[in-house]
Nucleic acid binder design. Structure first.
Lengths: 120, 120
DNA sequence: AATACTACCTTGCGTTGCAAGGTAGTATAC
DNA sequence: GTATACTACCTTGCAACGCAAGGTAGTATT
């Protein structure tokens, strides 16, 4: 059944920046899934395993990420992800997109000039 | 087939704020589909009819929008959308969500303080 | 009456998010 | 040394959504 509510819209807004945030997190320091989940949670971006794992796989097969297996001090080994060169480039572009989006939205948040609209 | 590229991520980022932007546009002045499409395009948010019409319907059946039929000077009549009270409330919440999201992302863009690195 | 334009809407496919479920390595308790 | 718990990996199945494409109808224009 079709279901749209305000929470849904909020969630969608956060989802939109998911890939951007994940790339950003990994770019700061290599990370494995639980690291990423924790950092996203601290940034108020709720994500679950069933979303993250497929997404990491997609980012890897798109050539933006690579990983190395590393032993854990307590528990099974972990896949630590790093950005590839292509991933760095993508992240850079996404930062620009993010800034552009900010400008766009700010322009929408500004009331229109009702007198003369030649600025279109 | 599964296809993820950088353009895709950019598009997704813009999609996330779609509902927010549409509500914002309508809140400034009642509008019909073509108005909205034009304004979104000016804000660099590419949207097509096949996306917008179902979305407007969802927003209406969620009680955030209402509309009135109005004659056009040249052409068939138009559905002019306005925000309901619930829609105003939703928009207000989305503005908050947007600001929170900004803070979150800015915190991710800032180098972590837990390490000694002072990059950039 | 034929064509063009505008406005509305639907269909069908592909992608994605996510709850739920599954496998396996490691450590701890008994 | 085997049972239990914990952590880490991943997959399955369904529903929501975007969008290219196609469809209907009212209103000029030729």
């Amino acid at each position: 059944m079709e279901e749209l509510n305000i929470e849904n819209s909020k969630i969608q807004m956060r989802r939109g920046v998911l890939e951007f945030c994940i790339l950003q997190i990994i770019s700061r320091e290599e990370a494995y899934a639980s690291d990423i989940l924790m950092e996203l949670k601290h940034a108020n971006l709720i994500v679950v395993e069933g979303t993250l794992y497929p997404l990491l796989s997609r980012l890897k097969s798109a050539g933006l990420l690579k990983y190395t297996w590393q032993e854990s001090e307590a528990g099974p080994p972990r896949k630590y992800y790093q950005l590839t060169e292509k991933g760095e480039e993508a992240l850079s572009q996404l930062r620009t997109t993010w800034q552009d989006l900010n400008s766009s939205i700010n322009s929408l948040l500004t009331p229109r000039t009702t007198t003369n609209e030649k600025n279109y």
